[in-house]
Design a protein around this nucleic acid. Structure first.
Lengths: 367, 367
DNA sequence: TTTAGCAGTCTAAGGTAGAGATTGCTAATT
DNA sequence: AATTAGCAATCTCTACCTTAGACTGCTAAA
């Protein structure tokens, strides 16, 4: 039993109205603001039917109607008006992105900030775990008498490096040779391959056994832990602006949920290949006791590779239209940023003289 | 005009009582719980005098008394009971610190977590800026055809490394030579020396000019920006547990203040060489519109060098005694951690087999 | 100097009444 | 058959009032 066109219109009116005011929507309100051609009584009848169908509820017998989570799902899928960014919103985006942002971390941080500022919601961004990165190069660099740095270069950039203790007998030459050996062994493999036994089988020369084991351990760390590390939250205080969290208890539950950043990962993951994913209400009941909310995320690609996700967390009643427009726009903006190389860090994000960090002008000065 | 002993006792009783219940303290309460030898009328008279002196106030004529910020200042300085950690608290500390934490960042993160968990307050930790670090070694490592990593080793550890674009003509050998050259030029200097012109004057061979400039620029970045980057907040939701922020408006103001992490830096800085610093109420009105609160911080040293600060942010009415005891204890705990080397990162924080990342057992296996 | 006793002041909680909003139903209308 | 007007019923929200309870400050006695 499908929705008639008129029911859809009324449903959309209720959702729009509720999103705007966070007040139960009455039949007369709809008549005045959306459908003046109908009488309030007709609208009332239709609303009763929509309630029957599970799209609306009332808080008490003499209150207006409120959309259910089901209604929102239908709304984002079919009913929601598509809008473009306003000039002001574009201005905000520009303000954040005309600085050079070349490190993925910074990029996602900026993205989160923009999203939060424009939507007035709490935003969240996270860097995809490195599992899918392909190892290009591994370098072992002697640092002090007893320590060395392990640098792992992947197609997505340089991983956060790791200091290891080494015995005092190790020379620079040994490090160089070992570097070549492990690059040879691991190069071309994905980090996740580490967990597939025998994906990487090469003869390990005895003298490099320890290096080999060390690298394995480090890579395992990346594929396990690293995924939890880089979550950026922006504007968590904004959750309090939403009337649904004006109740202190609910506000606290929500903030605690946000505090435990690690637990956010599963809900942020974009299940499908969809560009934008909606998780509304019970869609994301990963943790029980998790406060009721909606999460809208987009995945971000650079040079064809997904580098991370970003989106918003807020009450089920949120301005989905606005959220989608900004997420969409940013996703495209990010995609157009210089690809590949930009995954590497370039701390000179705000070089006062506008020059790039260059050891040699041959390539860069042309820019 | 000094405080009589009896006045001090009464003041302490008021502060203790108020810290415990966040309720105005009445004369009869003090009589019952603290000073049964006196009559409530006497206590009333003394309290009136303490109010006259600026240590107490009442919310309305028929309420009990509440301590002023001045009273808290006196309290932490003179009146506060010193206590030790309970067995349970020690257990919590142990739980966080028996994992190996060797990177400064992780160390402060753990510290913040412990503090927040034990005090039930929002805690904050930040890594001292690297200005005072002395450069030991600089390494330039070619990574891809056009990028290199600059690794700067200081006595406090390896700085977050920086990727730079290089021209394609640069060889590994050139990098090695350049590394040696810049290490020679900058080694032994503090990072802050960069800003003192001519502190570092060596003949710069023409072929290394660009490298030299690049390093300078990177170091300048560290001394400017880095200080803002590493602020860790833990348990910001806990602020809502405090009755003084049960008012939504106040809660929001506080959370917004915490959200803008950068602005926290000035209030966190430990002005004196005091181990523990108290900023109570107006002591820390750096930003106007900043919500009323108290900040207690301790500075943490490793091997004689201050690596960062950590402490709590909460209502003026907080359990200073508990806070001080935990900050004090942690400060000592941290100090006893393996010095110097421990500043370096060792990602293997949870190695299941308990083994260390080692390239060579000569040194480490003895541990 | 301390204390008992008491009037005065203020808050917090509970209860009531009335205004206002919105619905569902019924009967009339298109 | 679908729509609409009209109206009683339901429920919330606010304002107001009252009362109980908690302290204090003051006065006069110990």
């Amino acid at each position: 039993m499908g929705l008639t066109n008129r029911k859809e219109k009324i449903l959309q009116a209720v959702v729009d109205g509720y999103i705007e005011n966070c007040q139960p929507v009455s039949s007369s309100e709809i008549k005045e603001h959306h459908l003046p051609a109908l009488s309030s009584a007709t609208i009332r009848n239709e609303m009763a039917a929509l309630e029957e169908m599970g799209y609306l509820t009332q808080l008490h017998t003499s209150s207006g109607r409120v959309p259910t989570a089901e209604a929102y799902r239908l709304y984002v899928e079919k009913l929601m008006p598509r809008r473009k960014l306003t000039r002001q919103e574009l201005k905000i985006v520009k303000r954040y992105f005309n600085k050079k942002v070349t490190e993925i971390d910074d990029l996602l941080k900026s993205t989160a900030k923009v999203i939060s500022e424009i939507t007035n919601l709490t935003s969240v961004a996270y860097v995809q775990n490195a599992d899918d990165a392909t190892i290009i190069n591994i370098r072992i660099v002697r640092i002090t008498d007893t320590t060395a740095l392990i640098i792992i270069v992947t197609n997505l950039g340089v991983l956060k490096d790791t200091t290891v203790h080494i015995g005092s007998g190790v020379t620079d030459e040994y490090c160089d040779m070992a570097s070549r050996f492990v690059t040879d062994a691991f190069g071309g493999h994905k980090i996740s391959d580490i967990n597939k036994p025998k994906a990487i089988v090469k003869q390990v020369k005895k003298e490099y056994e320890r290096v080999f084991d060390t690298i394995i351990r480090i890579l395992k760390n990346y594929s396990h832990e690293e995924m939890f590390s880089d979550i950026v939250l922006e504007g968590s205080a904004k959750i309090l602006e939403q009337p649904e969290y004006s109740n202190l208890k609910k506000a606290k539950a929500m903030l605690e949920f946000l505090d435990a950043k690690e637990e956010l990962v599963p809900v942020l993951q974009n299940s499908d290949d969809m560009n934008i994913s909606f998780k509304i209400g019970k869609d994301n009941e990963i943790k029980d006791g998790m406060p009721e909310c909606a999460i809208v995320t987009a995945s971000y690609n650079i040079g064809g590779v997904t580098v991370g996700n970003a989106g918003v967390i807020g009450p089920i009643r949120m301005d989905y239209s606005k959220v989608v427009s900004i997420l969409d726009y940013l996703s495209k903006t990010v995609q157009m940023l210089p690809a590949g190389e930009s995954a590497n860090s370039d701390a000179d994000g705000e070089a006062p003289d506008g020059d790039d960090n260059s050891l040699n002008t041959e390539v860069d000065s042309a820019e």
